[in-house]
Each structure stands twice: as C-alpha cells, then as structure tokens.
Design a protein around this nucleic acid. Structure first.
Lengths: 340, 340
DNA sequence: AAAAACACTGCAAACGTTTGCGATAACGAT
DNA sequence: ATCGTTATCGCAAACGTTTGCAGTGTTTTT
C-alpha cells in the first residue's frame, strides 16, 4: 500500500488534532462549520479512506459474514451464496466462504478458525457426515450470531431457514396424478437426510389423497444421474412398468429420462417425469423437465436478513424463528401430453 | 464475545509484562524456559487465541484473499472458487467473495470497497460488460497483488491463468470437420472478452487448415441459452443452413440443440453440435453433448498459488507469468453419427 | 578486580481510529 | 467585575499485539 492516507495525515496537514478530524468527518456537532468543511474537502482531495482494520479493532466488528456450506459447486448452494452476498452487500457486509466438503472434521476445523477470525455472524448448512454438533455449540456459547439454512441443526436453538420439501413433493406428485399417471415411481435419496424424508412423505401423501395404493417396489433409493440409468432400466423392465416418475432431484430425473429414451419409450406420451431442482437442469433436457423450483437465492436472502436482525442490538434477545420457503411447481414438456 | 482472553490477561495473572508473554508465545530465544513454559501452559489452559484484528492492524495483513467474479452460480466459477478456497486454506488464508453480476458499475464499486477492506490479494475474472479498466489499474497502483484468471484483463500487466481457449476451440472444430461437417457456424461471445476472441480464432484456424472458406454469416454473437433459440432458428432457416455448430459454451449449445430439434432436424445425423464447458450440461442434453472440458478447480488452485507467491516477500519483483491450462475434447453423441 | 559478555525482562511506541473528559476562549447575563 | 453558557477543540486512553531498545542482574573473560 503505497499512499495510504490516515486521519493523522489530515490532522498534521491542517494543523489540528486527530480527534477533531475524526469528529469533523462524521459531522459531529461540536465541530465548527469551517473546520468541518476544511477537513472534509482535504479528505476528499487526498482520497482518505478510513482503515477498516483499525475500526474493527476499536469496535470489535469486522463487517464480515461467514458462510459454512458443504459444497460450492452444488448449484443450489451457489444460488444461496448469491442471495447472501446480495443482502450482505446491501448492508455493508462482505462474505467469507468456508467449504466443508461434506466432511465432519473439516467442519470442526472451520469452526475453530472462525473463532479467531472474528466474524460478525455465521450462516451454516451442515455437512452430510456431521453427527456431533459440539463445534457449533461452542460457537453459540462464544456468542457468535448464527442462522442455519437448508441442512439445519436440530440440536441447536437458532434461527433457521428451510425449504418446504413436503409441499413441493406433494404438488409435484399431485400434478403427475392430475395428468393421468396411475403408477408413479419415486427415486428417493437416503432417508438420513431430512429433505429426502420430507419429499418422500409428500409423495406418499399425494398417493393417499388420490387413493392410489403404495407399491414399495416403486420407491427406490437413487439420488444421482448415474445410478438413475440402471435403476430406471430395471423399473421400465418390470411386468407392469410405471407411467410416471418423481425424482428427488433434477439430475436423477435427467438420468431417468436418458434411460427411458434409450429404451425407446416416449416422454411424456408414455411416461411422465418430474424432478426437484438442484441445478439448471430442467431447461436442458429434451423434453424440458417439469420440476419443483426451490429458490436458493431467496433462502440466502432471508437467512441473511434473519442474521442481520440477530446481529443488531435489538436482535440479541429475540426468540428464534424458523422460516419456511415455499417451492413452486414449474410445468414443462416432460409431463404435459401424457396419454397413459 | 463473552470470555475472550488476551495477552494482557496472561501477563497480569502471571505478574509479568505483555512483551514477555508475547515473546514466550512465539518461542523467542530471549525468554527463559521456565517463563516460556508457564506462559504457554496458562495460554493453553485459558484457551488463549491471538486476536486476528490486532495482528492485522500491526502487520497490515488480513490473511484474506478476495475473489471478484461475474457470477457464483456459473458452474465454472464455482469450480474455480472451490479450487481457490482449497489452496487458500492450506496456506492459512480465508476467501471473501465479490460478485459483479456481469455489471461494470458493480465491478467498479466492488473495487472501491476492496480498497478499504484491506485484502491481502485479489483473484479476478472480469465482467462481460467491462470495457474500461481504470478500477483495476487503481488497485494495481495501490499495490494490491492480483492475479487474473479466465477473463483476464489485457491492459494490465499481471499474473494470469487462462484456459487454452484457442487450442480447445481448434480441437473442437477440427473434430467437427473430421466427422464431415462442411458449413460450421460459430455462436460467439462478445469480443471484448479474450476468451471469446481466442475461441473464435481457434474456430477460424481450424477452417483455414481445412481450406474451408469463412462465411461471416455463420459467425453470430450469441452466448446464452435463450438467445441461442432465436439465433439458431435464423441459422437453420438460411437457404444453405450449417451442418455443424460450435458454440462458445455449453448452455448456448444446449439452446441451439433445442431449437434444432424443434425444427425437426436430427442431431447428429443432419447437424453436429459442439460446446465448451461451463457447467454440468453436456451429459444432460439429448443427445449428450460433445464439448471442450476446462478444469475450473485447477485454474483456481494455480491462480491462488501464483497469488501467494506474488504476495510473499520474494514475489514482489518477479516478472509476471501467464499459465495456460490445457483443455480436452470429450466426444459424445452430438457429433458422432453425422451423415452430412 | 574490573571489564565485558550474557541472559532475561520490561518500557514504550506503534498500527489507525474513537470518545470521555477537560481546556480554552468568547459571550451574554447578573 | 463575576459568573455561567456555549462553541470549539485537544489530550489521552483504549482496542490487542509486536518489537527496538534499555535496563537489570549474573556470569565469563582478562
């Protein structure tokens, strides 16, 4: 940093004290108009920028918000980050990123490093492999304001933002039923994940509403594109194959569609497919994919607002809240035109 | 922060001076073994953590690396971030993210805010709409170490990490030619971006090699999925439509494929399509997309290493270097089987 | 025995800023 | 002339740490 001009420089040049300069810069009433103008003019002329570090040291605020997530490359999380960054910036905060890579140990060491990087607040989505949560509890005891989103921590009493997975799945399967599907398969994720449970419950609820009996052979654990190829091939080779598929995420749906297509079946004429967004998948497939949209950026925005509120003076003693973000079904080509 | 213990506390408790404590903690040879042990034991017992902010103020280092990118949600960039975060953490740095949203004004204001957030170094990929680069020059004059990656700034003499766009495009178009394409269109990005220029040059070079005359009507600015629909429709309605398309990125290629398909043409039988990776697009399309792979995480890692070197004492006066990351062509269904 | 070297520790300034409090002068009121 | 106000400003401490220098006391050297 070559020419970094400080408040001291201004004071020296103007022949006044640093305290006067400091006050003049923030329009303190004690300072005469003349002095104030002189200071502010010189400050502008010399491109004075207050030193953020010194400020941090003084008022114990870094204007930094931390984000702890499993994986940046997951489209959903990058959307969330985007939303966080937006709101944070609007409020004068910058965001620093910590990636756990779905690894518990890494998550713990991240929390350690967060403790002494003096971050003002924290937004967290837990790793898949996290069972113990002492590292989060420690952060809470230290008094770092935090908000969990999506992959929340049940053992901690904090603000939370979650997706309405149940309603989303319900709407999706209702839609499949409404276009005429009678045998709907569900490609599900491991039931250890809350989101997987809730989506499956939504699926079951929709069947129940429509008095469609549940066929356990149609509920298959399969949450990625590759496995979907094999699983779908098996599904479609059944004596009585499904005429609809609700996949736990879009990539799985895409895999299923690929397999179906390769076997010579037509989508959506012979079988309808519906996914659950986790990427910009749905407009890329052919046909385009009907899917449940979850608004990652909105989750990020709301979580950040919650955090900012919690970080403010008034927020310290507020009761914790849980915001549920609505999903919406986007109907595309993969389900309209079913002729089952 | 409830119980934050400082060096002063240790000093007071042990009845010695802060300077002795400070030295004892870093094994300064001046300090006797007894004192050192006493200090270090107490420090451990009381969970002493050095205050990062105070350290920053003292030695003008924040241990923070900034990333300026157009869009986090772009898969390519999230890969890069991931690589950056990895190497940064290995070296005790955290990363803070700034998103320009492809907006020049935003980019400028980001640079302003970076100036006084006292970041130790910067990794930048320019926005599409950036024509003037004074804001970057200002950062450079201030002396902030920086490395450009992917969307580099030609006017600035800095370290750079780029993808071998020319060779990648060359290989892609050579491939299209090798499968028999005679009229190859190029959907290109704004030529303000070097990557766009180079990919176009690769395209031109491949044509030249094969003595295929350049038809300017086949080179169309179009770098997103939506525009590709319209542009491709126009292309395919020409009296003599192309029999191959090289798109500047995968999303554009996907858009083109969609339009082509809707118009009743067969891919790859009647027209072959090739993209350039910027996401997990290529295995989702139907047919799957032949594309040029670029390794985002590797770019991030190398760029960060370059930056760390530049930030070190020895690095200050090194000549700038440009690292070129190789691409590789991945052939899939969209080009094999062309019967032009 | 005096001088020099050594081992250990503390003082105080510095990083850039904010802020409580005291100081000064001018002014009007008594 | 004395007093209280008011307007304007500076001193100095504080945030937590590092570090050059000086100060002790002890040991070695000559």
């Amino acid at each position: 940093m070559a020419n970094t001009v400080t408040i001291k420089d201004l004071a020296r040049i103007l022949g006044i004290s640093v305290s006067t300069v400091s006050r003049a810069l923030k329009n303190h009433p004690d300072i005469s108009v003349d002095t104030r103008n002189a200071v502010q003019e010189l400050a502008k002329k010399m491109h004075y920028k207050p030193n953020a570090i010194a400020l941090s040291l003084r008022q114990k605020k870094t204007k930094l918000i931390g984000i702890v997530i499993p994986q940046i490359i997951h489209h959903f999380f990058s959307c969330v980050i985007s939303g966080i960054e937006k709101v944070a910036n609007e409020n004068g905060y910058n965001v620093v990123i910590f990636q756990s890579n779905e690894d518990y140990d890494r998550e713990v060491s991240i929390c350690q490093s967060i403790i002494n990087s003096h971050i003002d607040g924290l937004l967290i989505s837990m790793s898949k492999t996290t069972a113990k949560t002492d590292h989060f509890k420690e952060l809470q005891e230290i008094g770092i304001p935090m908000v969990f989103f999506d992959r929340i921590c049940g053992e901690l009493n904090t603000d939370r933002v979650v997706v309405d997975d149940f309603q989303g799945a319900l709407a999706a399967v209702r839609h499949l039923i409404s276009v005429g599907c009678k045998r709907i398969a569900h490609l599900s994720a491991p039931q250890t994940l809350q989101i997987a449970q809730k989506r499956q419950l939504g699926y079951l609820e929709a069947l129940k509403e429509a008095r469609i009996p549940v066929d356990k052979e149609l509920i298959i654990p399969c949450d990625n594109q590759n496995d979907a190829l094999e699983v779908t091939r098996r599904l479609m080779s059944m004596p009585c194959p499904p005429d609809g598929i609700f996949a736990v995420n879009d990539l799985t749906a895409a895999g299923a569609m690929y397999a179906i297509h390769k076997m010579g079946y037509k989508i959506p004429e012979e079988i309808a497919v519906c996914g659950f967004t986790d990427g910009m998948v749905s407009t890329l497939t052919n046909p385009t994919l009907t899917t449940v949209e979850q608004h990652g950026d909105e989750i990020g925005e709301i979580a950040t607002r919650l955090l900012l509120r919690r970080m403010s003076d008034e927020g310290t003693n507020l009761p914790t809240t849980t915001k549920v973000i609505k999903t919406n079904l986007v109907v595309r080509e993969s389900t309209i035109g079913f002729q089952g």
